[in-house]
């Protein structure tokens, strides 16, 4: 009998882990955005002094972990597990960073939902008594994602208005079995939902049904209402995805608009020519570990539903005419128990 399970897809932690530190590193474009003051490190050069963008991304992943460790005043040898992933084939950014970090490592792939996938599993490992310290981390890089999923950078093409801009950056969160909070109290694990969207330039539309499904399930499973939360934040729906998500939820009787924000919309200014907004595994990771954690620590928000959202496509599946499945994992972050 799973005593910590609530409803169909949610767990309530008995010993909720504390978020004790977050580390962030972002690229130059993100460093010009509205959230620039909340990041630990802003790169001047998006190759980070490396020979390839893939190497730069892996180095960012590693440094986000190191920044978080420094803030928590911990050594990597004190960490029980690293739960990390990114968008590249065979999750090379995370795996190659783990090669340097010398720590037990679970590699995850949840596309842009990886941040909350890692936090959910990390919280479960701690609550289950298998670990005292966990690091969950993800990265993405505009240039590595473009060359894997789309076109060469210097190709002279127009990006559609529905397209999103992959965030260059990496974010790492350290969870601890003991601490003063903020706590991860609940986690709702999403189902893969696919309503047949095929446009790889419109990820917001592909992910919105999964996002709506996880939010509705979370409210049903926990019995929480919208009023219980100060903020409901998604990972990278973008402007197009936000509008669709709000309508889908409204139709089901959930009007979350007044409490709602999206990392992909917050991280860039409209003048930065990113069209629908930011995306990528790092989008939710840097906004959570940079802006949101500082807002929670400053008492602006006391209880937050944070949900990273992923579009589970590959260039192969798109070329073979497959539709784009979406997934979304939600966690409750609360300053009180």
């Amino acid at each position: 009998m799973a005593e910590k399970k609530l409803g169909t897809q949610t767990v309530k932690f008995k010993n909720p882990p504390s978020i004790i530190a977050g580390g962030t590193i972002v690229g130059p474009k993100e460093g010009e955005g509205p959230l620039r003051d909340y990041f630990d490190m802003i790169l001047v050069d998006d190759t980070y002094g490396e020979k390839s963008w893939e190497k730069a991304e892996s180095k960012m992943f590693q440094d986000a972990v190191n920044l978080a460790l420094k803030k928590a005043n911990l050594k990597i040898s004190e960490i029980d597990y690293l739960l990390g992933g990114d968008l590249l084939n065979q999750i090379i950014s995370a795996n190659f960073a783990a090669r340097q970090l010398n720590v037990p490592h679970f590699g995850l792939y949840g596309a842009c939902s990886t941040m909350t996938e890692g936090l959910t599993l990390g919280a479960m490992l701690i609550d289950g008594g298998y670990a005292d310290y966990i690091i969950a981390a993800t990265s993405s890089h505009f240039s590595t994602a473009e060359r894997q999923f789309r076109y060469p950078l210097e190709q002279g093409i127009q990006r559609p208005f529905t397209s999103q801009w992959t965030v260059t950056g990496a974010g790492a969160t350290i969870l601890a079995s003991t601490g003063e909070g903020p706590y991860i109290t609940h986690a709702t694990t999403g189902k893969v939902v696919d309503l047949g969207m095929k446009d790889a330039n419109n990820m917001g539309a592909a992910m919105a049904p999964a996002a709506a499904d996880t939010i509705i399930t979370h409210f049903k499973d926990t019995g929480f209402t919208i009023e219980d939360y100060d903020l409901i934040m998604t990972g990278d729906m973008g402007r197009v995805g936000r509008d669709i998500l709000l309508e889908l939820l409204y139709k089901e009787g959930y009007d979350i608009e007044s409490k709602y924000k999206d990392c992909g919309i917050e991280i860039f200014d409209e003048s930065q020519d990113v069209h629908s907004g930011g995306s990528g595994a790092a989008c939710s990771a840097v906004v959570l570990n940079g802006w949101l954690l500082s807002q929670i620590q400053n008492g602006v928000y006391k209880k937050v539903l944070f949900m990273a959202t992923g579009a589970l496509l590959s260039p192969t599946s798109s070329q073979q005419g497959e539709s784009i499945p979406g997934i979304a994992h939600a966690i409750t972050i609360s300053t009180t128990l």
């Binding site: 529905t162 309503l195 539309a205 309508e247």
Partner: peptide, 11 residues
């Protein structure tokens, strides 16, 4: 769903 999504697609 396609109809809903299309409504929000910027032209």
């Amino acid at each position: 769903y396609k109809n809903i999504a299309q409504k929000y697609e910027p032209k």
